[in-house]
Design a protein around this nucleic acid. Structure first.
Lengths: 200, 200, 200, 200
DNA sequence: AATGAATGAGTCTTCATTCAT
DNA sequence: TATGAATGAAGACTCATTCAT
């Protein structure tokens, strides 16, 4: 008789929004943005098609929201490092943080890769990530130098490439890719190389 | 009517087909398959929209043809190595061949990456490449082992990842990525690591 | 529960209904029926969208109600003339009554004009107004004849047209149209014409 | 075998465009812009729905085109007067020109009336007509003064209103409205009034 | 009586594909 | 072989209406 409580109403809306975002993320990541229809998103999210557009004005806005919210959520996790450790531990923590992000949200990483391959979307993603990446790469460069790298710039490139390469393989078939073994192998290779001439 | 004109006619057809394929490749690589319209392809190829469909029954067939023809063309170049050399030279030749392919056809590599991120297309590309990749990886594994790798399997993964990571960065902005420096750095790192205990 | 609260409840309902009708009238008149959404009506009426449909089963019913109630309300005012005066005064009273209706409810008149231009709605409006208009025009015709018109039928048309023409201009921009001056001018013209040969 | 001649192709396109414009004009005039669907337009124009949008990017653009092209076409006819005559003949010519426009294109006039009643469209129509109307009303005012009007401004209003009032009645049911008789009656009334004190 | 989230039929618009020439 | 007008199925988006509370 009385209308739904303000609280309940808000909660319902938040839940349906989340369902839409989640369904869209999966479909965008697996089929691409353009190939994904609003109908499919609605079906997977188990809401009506119309409801999507009470949350987002356009299909594009769903992707925009994903990039805004989800990426924003991920960067701190991926790049946020605590300072109270040795350079080596810091380095390992960084690598592992990134890898955990990939393991926790492979779809999001896969989508990011996709957007990066798309002229129309690349800029947006770059802009979003730039702030974090600059800080990250700056810190990483110093760390690498401390660990004994002779050429921290190129090593940074190598690490960045490593992550993209892992992402391109792991996120499309997580169960088939030995992500941890490969990571350990790569890290060991780097560390053993640097160790030989550590910055005193 | 005369053999000459028939010849000419054939040639014109081949040329317009090539123009379509080339335009489609660029657009597919930069915007994605679904986001590319037949109109855009026709415009870029400077042919009429109708002509596209005399060459290819559907838009999908254009992509299929690209994958068939272009990829088919690339694999031998990328993986074809002449045998008359030392393992080290062979290894370098392999790496360089792949890199040259990327430098010569960044759009094609970019498209391949994209297709790999797409559930509906991944299988196709995998199938196409499988034969070559198996041979390639087999050969590479042996080569690496000969060069002193302690763990040729993981090193293979590393190299594969390296190429994907390079591709993800280089093909979207070739002018910004120091592809050769990074490659040299990576190769040097691998070789120096293996050198220490070469398989005699 | 108590009679008091039931009373209050009824009153509240009547008020919200009125708000809806009033908001709908303005929007229908300014944007047209089809271009007006239930959301807009709710917003302007400061009620929830759902409430609209407790008062009216369909959006159409709102317009129907406006026509029924409002037009019904207006006709007696516009056409109701008291008899205790000279033909000239009666004539002036009629004209002024109509004009006052227009000045009091320009939106309603504007809406009526609009409905008249719409094949699907014209009939309805015509039917509603017919009874009054027939009486009115009959009375007007006699009045005009008494005042000396040589051709009361055509003069009736002229007067009818005059009102529509005024309406088309005044109701869309009341502040810009010198409605009284124009009315006085028109009335004076008619009366001076008839005066020359008044039916004794 | 060879493509349609450039000529034929152009002609086809022009014809289908005309069919769309014509169908849209009728439907917009009779049902209103918002209540008219693209499907209806296509059906009445006997073209496919898709074809509409090769001519016009949006439904709105059809209306815009009608206003641009058709109104533009009408104004010179309605307001274009040849100078080589007496003021009285000029005046009659003006009135008749307007009336002929209404008789030739009642749907267009009806649509114009409708747009005038719509807040969102009124400005556009006003702007389109302003240039002509200013010239027209300026000329008319002088003409009226020459013909002996004591108050040319108010007489201009009267004439403008007369046209709008006629339009509101004639264009929705041309067969029912004695347009010529009413016009003659009105013109005679004005002229006889002015005659009594012509500007010498 | 009142709310606003949810629905889905309906509308506008796009675009791969066809077809007459 | 080549053209581009034409088609219509499919997709994005709107909005009157319903419904749980």
């Amino acid at each position: 008789m009385s209308p739904r409580s303000r609280e309940l109403s808000k909660q319902m809306k938040a839940e349906s929004r989340k369902a839409v975002v989640s369904a869209a993320l999966e479909l965008f990541a697996k089929k691409g943005f353009s190939a994904t229809t609003a109908d499919e998103i609605a079906k997977k999210a188990k809401v009506s098609k119309g409801l999507i557009f009470t949350h987002f004005a356009t299909k594009q806005d769903i992707l925009l929201a994903i990039v805004d919210e989800q990426l924003e959520r991920l960067f701190p996790i991926a790049f946020g490092n605590d300072d109270a450790r040795s350079p080596r531990d810091k380095f390992l923590a960084l690598i592992n943080a990134w890898l955990n992000v990939m393991k926790d949200d492979p779809l999001l990483i896969r989508l990011t890769l996709q957007l990066n391959l798309d002229d129309a979307w690349r800029k947006l993603v770059k802009r979003k990530g730039k702030r974090y990446i600059e800080i990250y790469l700056g810190g990483l460069r110093d760390l690498i130098a401390q660990l004994g790298s002779k050429n921290p710039d190129l090593d940074c490139y190598l690490i960045a490439i490593f992550f993209d390469g892992i992402a391109a393989n792991y996120t499309v078939a997580p169960e088939l890719f030995p992500i941890d073994a490969v990571k350990d192998h790569f890290v060991e290779m780097l560390l053993s190389r640097w160790k030989k001439s550590p910055k005193r």
